[in-house]
Every structure is written in structure tokens, then in C-alpha cells.
Amino acid sequence: MRFWKNSKQAAWLWGILAGIVFLGIGVAEGQFAVIWRKATMICMECIGIG
């Protein structure tokens, strides 16, 4: 019960941990390369041309 109460109070900590895990999976799946490729070329859609 006490653990559960403490867990709820520290929900932000669980959120940060989840974020780190997701980032780790993203690295493993090569998703950062996808982001980098998109971000380093002019995004024609973003500027309203593509």
C-alpha cells in the first residue's frame, strides 16, 4: 500500500524512466537516424512546397 502511494507521488519518475527506455528502444531500432535524415534535408512539406 505504502509502495503504491509512493509510486503515485513519484509518477514523474516512472515517466522519466519510461522515456529513457523508449529512447533506448529508439536507438536500437535506428529511429534516430530516420529523424536525423528528415531534419537535415529541407522539409518541403514543412515550408509549404512539397
Binding site: 515517466g15 519510461a18 522515456g19 529512447l23 533506448g24 529508439g26 531500432e29
Partner: peptide
């Protein structure tokens, strides 16, 4: 996952 990681 990578984007979700930044959001979280």
C-alpha cells in the same frame, strides 16, 4: 519509440 521517449 524515439519520439515517445522525448515526449515522456
Amino acid at each position: 519509440f524515439a519520439a515517445l521517449g522525448f515526449f515522456f
